[in-house]
């Protein structure tokens, strides 16, 4: 195994059972993540982008075993964590959620919130020591000492997100899964948090999996980007590849529908019709074909029958589409 890879995910599938009928029989599967593979390197940020319901959050949850994977392999360094995440490794992978409100217990003080993981996973019970550790963590996210004894409701959204980040850092993790950490925040606060995350990454050599729907943010923070649609990757590559040479019709549509303030950055107009189909009954063949402009214009023809090809455009830039379709963009 390559030594600079910290997390390796291979053919990961996560299905949620759909229960129905009189005795809650298992009638179908919601294929939230359907055959996804990627590697995460040390100190790297991998951005997962896609619309709601495309399975990006489920990938994050599966990695920390909040949801059991249905099939596939996950390796953390040399350890196979496909079936279970042992306590010793649990420390090393942490999660930050979108909504800081619901991830902080309103009845606990900040000092208890931050020191809770230390208490549980490191077994330290000395109150003074815990307090000291919590204070150090608060300093890292540039908050003040007096905040230790306050309750979550006394803070603004940005401060709460800082507290959540401090808690995630408590056990010196190596990977942090960031699930839309800035979506609920204003732009100026978002900028503060993004700067903080970058600073922490440099300081502790963290690897991030950054889940978001905001393309501007992912471009800023991620080294590599994977674009998802209905549980599958449609395009992966460095953020430069994705933004300067988007090759999948879905990526192109996403980029063009992104509202920008600078008109030079506007990609050519291409607005998708329709909405994302249900992952319970995904379309046959390429899951994107009912909305795909290439298929509608008749550039590609077999999309409703055959699954897309894996096309290597350049090193690390992979597109799952039809060769014919991609070539039509070059003209």
């Amino acid at each position: 195994m390559n030594s600079d890879i910290i997390l390796k995910v291979k053919n990961l599938k996560t299905f949620y059972p759909v229960l129905g009928g009189l005795f809650k029989r298992h009638v179908n599967d919601l294929k939230a993540v359907n055959d996804v593979s990627f590697n995460l390197k040390y100190g790297e940020t991998l951005g997962l982008v896609g619309e709601s319901g495309c399975g990006k959050t489920t990938i994050g949850k599966t990695i920390v075993h909040l949801v059991k994977p249905t099939d596939g392999e996950i390796f953390y360094k040399e350890n196979d964590i496909s079936l279970d995440l042992p306590r010793a490794l649990r420390k090393k992978i942490q999660l930050v959620f979108q909504d800081p409100d619901s991830s902080l217990n309103p009845r606990m003080k900040i000092v208890d919130l931050i020191s809770e993981p230390i208490r549980i996973l490191e077994g330290i019970t000395n109150k003074i020591e815990l307090r000291l550790r919590a204070y150090k963590l608060l300093q890292i996210v540039s908050m003040k000492k007096e905040h230790l004894d306050r309750f979550p409701h006394e803070f603004s959204g940005g401060q709460k997100q800082r507290i959540v980040i401090a808690r995630a850092l408590a056990l010196n993790p190596e990977i942090i899964v960031l699930d839309e950490p800035t979506s609920a925040l204003d732009v100026s606060v978002q900028a503060q948090i993004l700067n903080l995350l970058k600073k922490l990454q440099r300081q502790f050599n963290l690897s991030y999996i950054f889940i978001t729907h905001d393309l501007s943010v992912v471009r800023y923070i991620a080294n590599r980007i994977a674009v998802m649609y209905l549980g599958k990757f449609v395009e992966t590559g460095s953020s430069k590849d994705i933004f300067e040479n988007p090759s999948h019709p879905y990526t192109r549509a996403l980029l063009s529908s992104r509202p920008v303030i600078n008109l030079d950055e506007k990609h050519e107009e291409q607005i998708l019709e329709g909405e994302i189909p249900s992952p319970v009954n995904p379309p046959e063949g390429c899951t994107f074909h009912p909305r795909c402009p290439l298929f509608q214009q008749g550039v590609t023809t077999v999309c409703n029958e055959q699954i897309p090809e894996e096309i290597n455009i350049s090193d690390g830039h992979i597109v799952w589409c039809r060769r014919k379709g991609i070539e039509s963009y070059k003209k």
């Binding site: 619309e51 709601s52 729907h213 393309l215 549509a253 996403l254 063009s256 529908s257 992104r258 509202p259 607005i271 998708l272 019709e273 909405e275 994302i276």
Partner: peptide, 10 residues
């Protein structure tokens, strides 16, 4: 979502 947002804005 962004694609739906673009539809609504248009």
């Amino acid at each position: 979502d962004v694609t739906i947002q673009a539809q609504i804005l248009r």
